[in-house]
Write a protein that binds this DNA or RNA. Structure first.
Lengths: 247, 247
DNA sequence: CTTGTATAACTAGTATGGTAGTTGGGTTGG
DNA sequence: CCAACCCAACTACCATACTAGTTATACAAG
């Protein structure tokens, strides 16, 4: 584990130790380098990166807010198992946001430069079909969704999307390279862009929904194939669950 | 400032110092006890609550992620001004989520107990109309939206909604008690509930949108009345803005 | 009076120390 | 053999110390 963590560490240029650590750990959890259920020790991580425990702790807190780790006081910090319920909820939130973004983009129109960039991204994605460049495709996939959101001026929506997407990316990483073929995903990107470019909000919405529902096709199969990575319970016990109502 | 902060502190029962501090500061910012632009000193806050700087710092980090404060390294931490763009974006995200939640609730149906609770909440809201119990109404308002979201099983959506709602609540707190009369808001709650209960997703969506667009009516007036609380620039300079695209 | 510089007083970021609590394993009494 | 207990080795949380960077001010040089 250590070597690949350190590799990510070196390629994180931005800013302070906390942010770099957060990004390294986040990526490692998404990529399953840190497996669900694994215990993360403040001290061990701190020693690995030759930093103090404090920024590690702060990174843990942020990860726990994204639902990627669970901090149990005086016990330990653990990578949370993939939860079916959490994935479904993340997908729900993401669909709500991206549908709204696509509709907004279709209705208000996008700058020509943004449309060009989106077309360009799809073209570059197509070059990944045969070359088995999955990692490259995934980055371009994220670029497509981000460019659309930011191009429509909805950067808060994108920020939230990015947070919940972590839950989904963990699943997507499992389904490499089978399940849904890349070509199909690229076609769906094309459909989204076509709807947006044509100013047809309804078509854009349908395209986004079709795209984001692909994960539903692969999920049951993945749970069957990797049961040890998933939470057995259908509903995950969340600390931030329903609270009492004002008396 | 100090006394009212400490009052909030004492009524935060839950858990650790960091969470209590976060909630106290968050509420204080929403309620304008901590005014936009005000500098927050780690040391000063720590001394006020007789805790160390560390949990204060961690609370600041969380607040900065919600866009309520800005941490400028080696400089200071400041309550961010209300930004027109940030409010519009928060409203956009909230509408996207709550529309999706309401549609989901209408389509899948809610338990009778949840419907009862929603009706009860509306009834209790009506009792606030004449008594000028604005604070009480606002709590019941939040209860209504939370109960709907959690009742439909979308607690992740609610968690995100709650985060972005802070930006909107700051504005709403300014508009007490004029602008939109409480009675109108309660009617809108009733319309949402009616749509959901009838299983009419389209009606529920229309009702949610009408409800959440009330803020748009009051915002220009508030900017004119309290220009010193708002960011002058139309677009706020966000650190997490657009990044380059994969080369 | 203006300007450049040194400096003192702040800041956040990081490191380290201390405390209370949990856990698991070994030991002791039955 | 088994149960109860104890203790050592962890944990996260909080407090404190230290570092590095920013800013405003005072002061000296022109």
């Amino acid at each position: 584990m250590t070597p690949s963590l350190l590799a990510l560490w070196d390629e994180q240029p931005e800013g302070n130790v906390r942010q770099r650590l957060h990004e390294v750990l986040r990526q490692s959890i998404i990529r399953m380098t840190l497996a669900p259920g694994q215990a993360l020790s403040e001290k061990e991580i701190a020693d690995t990166f030759t930093v103090s425990r404090q920024p590690v702790r702060e990174a843990f807190i942020r990860l726990s807010e994204a639902g990627l780790v669970e901090v149990r006081p005086q016990r330990g910090t653990y990578v949370v198992p993939i939860s079916h319920a959490a994935v479904m909820e993340a997908r729900f939130v993401r669909e709500a946001l991206e549908v709204a973004v696509a509709r907004s983009a279709a209705e208000q129109g996008l700058d020509a430069s943004v449309l060009d960039e989106l077309h360009d991204l799809i073209a570059r994605q197509k070059r990944c079909i045969d070359s088995d460049a999955h990692d490259r495709f995934y980055r371009l996939d994220e670029d497509f969704h981000r460019t659309l959101a930011l191009g429509a001026g909805h950067d808060a929506a994108w920020r939230v999307t990015q947070e919940v997407k972590a839950q989904l990316d963990r699943v997507r990483y499992l389904s490499v390279p089978d399940t849904t073929p890349i070509a199909k995903l690229i076609d769906q990107h094309g459909a989204i862009l076509a709807g947006v470019a044509a100013g047809d909000a309804d078509a854009a919405e349908r395209a986004v929904k079709a795209h984001l529902r692909e994960i539903l096709r692969s999920l049951p199969d993945l749970i069957a194939r990797f049961p040890e990575l998933f939470d057995i319970a259908s509903t995950r016990p969340t600390l931030s669950a329903a609270q009492g109502v004002t008396a």
